[in-house]
């Protein structure tokens, strides 16, 4: 029953399921990672801020 269905298969477009923002999923993922980097930078700043 092995199918050997790896990641290599092209992604099938979803009917009636448009990408909500930024035009493509990779761009959305990039936005999430940029946001994480900003949050971590903000936390580092908070930790070292001279209150």
């Amino acid at each position: 029953m092995s199918h050997n269905s790896g990641m290599h298969e092209p992604e099938i477009p979803e009917p009636h399921d448009p990408v909500p923002v930024f035009g493509s999923w990779p761009r959305i993922y990039a936005a999430v990672l940029i946001c994480l980097a900003l949050v971590m930078a903000g936390i580092a700043l908070f930790q070292h801020w001279n209150f």
């Binding site: 269905s5 990641m7 993922y29 999430v32 990672l33």
Partner: peptide, 30 residues
């Protein structure tokens, strides 16, 4: 957040298109 991006890009499409009830059901198909 990094894990969520990886899961969205890899596992979620496989689970969703396989129309499974459990994640482990997919392993029998694979």
């Amino acid at each position: 957040p990094i894990a969520m991006v990886i899961i969205c890009a890899t596992l979620v499409p496989f689970f969703y298109r396989a129309r499974v009830f459990t994640a482990y059901e997919y392993l029998e198909k694979r």
